[in-house]
Design a protein around this nucleic acid. Sequence first.
RNA 1: GGAGAUGUAUCGAAGUGGUCAUAACGAGCACGAUUGGAAAUCGUGUUGCCGUGAUGAGCGGCACGUGGGUUCAAAUCCCACCAUCUCCGCCA
Length: 423
Amino acid sequence: MLDIRLLRNEPEKVKAALARRKEEVDIDEILTLDSQKREILFEVEGLKSKQNEVSKKIPAMKKAGEDVAPIFAEMKELSDKIKDLDEKVRDLDEKINTKMLTIPNLPNPEVPDGMTDDDNVEIRKFMDPTQFAFEPKAHWDVGANLGILDAPTAGKVTGTRFTFYKGMGARLERAVINFYLDTHTTESGYTEIFPPYMVHRRSMVGTGQLPKFEEDAFKVAGTDYFLIPTAEVPVTNMYRDEILDGESLPIKHVAYSACFRAEAGSAGKDTRGLIRQHQFNKVELVKFTKPEDSYAELEKLTNDAEKVLQLLKIPYRVVAICVGDLGFTAAKKYDIEVWMPSYGRYVEISSCSNFEDFQARRANIKFKNSPKDKAQYVHTLNGSGVAIGRTVAAILENYQNEDGSVTIPDVLVPYMGGKTEIR
RNA sequence: GGAGAUGUAUCGAAGUGGUCAUAACGAGCACGAUUGGAAAUCGUGUUGCCGUGAUGAGCGGCACGUGGGUUCAAAUCCCACCAUCUCCGCCA
């Protein structure tokens, strides 16, 4: 959420920033509602002040035996007026709030222009795309041939966009999860969290999934719970409505979770394989920082995510996301994309974002440097560190051999019970 | 799922309709006094949000788990919901 005072004080700046994203938001309408609200607020607060003043005198008057009936009548009138105006303020507040919650974050000025992923800018590369002396297969064929991935059975049991992992496939998924968690906790200093996979509405609003994108989420019937689309939601909301000690910042968490996405707008896209599933595994990195540190921390977070791919020796590149591809909540974002031979291109495996105070304002997460300081909003950041299913897909494709077997990356061998290949 | 209890500042906790929420009392924390230094002791200070104002001071409003209601007036009375604890039931 943006600061409404920013809208009041610098409406042109806000409009210009939103225009870069080609977002149509009626700022002036919000400002009109806001000034109406403040006008009524001013009036009703004056009336309340009077009400308080008179109420204080009543006990003494009663004690003195004075007739309070006329005052009661007068106060009743005042009280009714206050209730009426309070309701108007409440209505206006709700309208303003609803609109504010649907305004996306303002992009950082450094974010490149452009509306599609073609406009994203490559920043750096690790290794070259894998070269094969034979015709490489797509991971869904590699997995099916080895009997370790089984989409048809998932179709029978659940539906499309689900997969059974079997045998060494299941083991590989678990190995990658543990390798990522171990690396981020022991080498990069993140504290591990294992969060709930369901959250209530307020948490989804806190991180920005709601109210605008309800169709993307799975809602649990008969409850107010949503299946989490990413561990970012429960982990960020751990600190909702809290004022943190500045000494404790930055807070760094790593969380494994299953993630659930309705993929409402993706019909027909990436229908085969592990790339786009309704349920997938992900290890997520989440940071809470002081405002002045957040951009340096974004670089570090991106590097932390890259590190696991370097250790796995999978070719990847990092791109700076353009304005139009930023998503709703980010002020700046890097994607890490792995080389996927079946796609003949790089495919996103991680998004690392700085939300600045956009989520912190929604979720009301603040910090103080000392008890005397005024509380201010933290900056929140997160990034995949990284997606598990897409990692497994990348391993099956980049590490495949001509005979259909797959070599296990060295760093995963201990996690695979010493096995060096799947065949 | 059933029964009961609880929810007040950083923590414990008092307050059961008004003149004790500038929240008693105790502890913590910060600063000061005292001390060679410390402990102890004494003193002062110590929530957040909104409006106005300059992001200051000051002034006003709001907040006693959350949301409603009754009343001239609600921490206090009523209703609903949420969370925690205890017991029972069920269960991995």
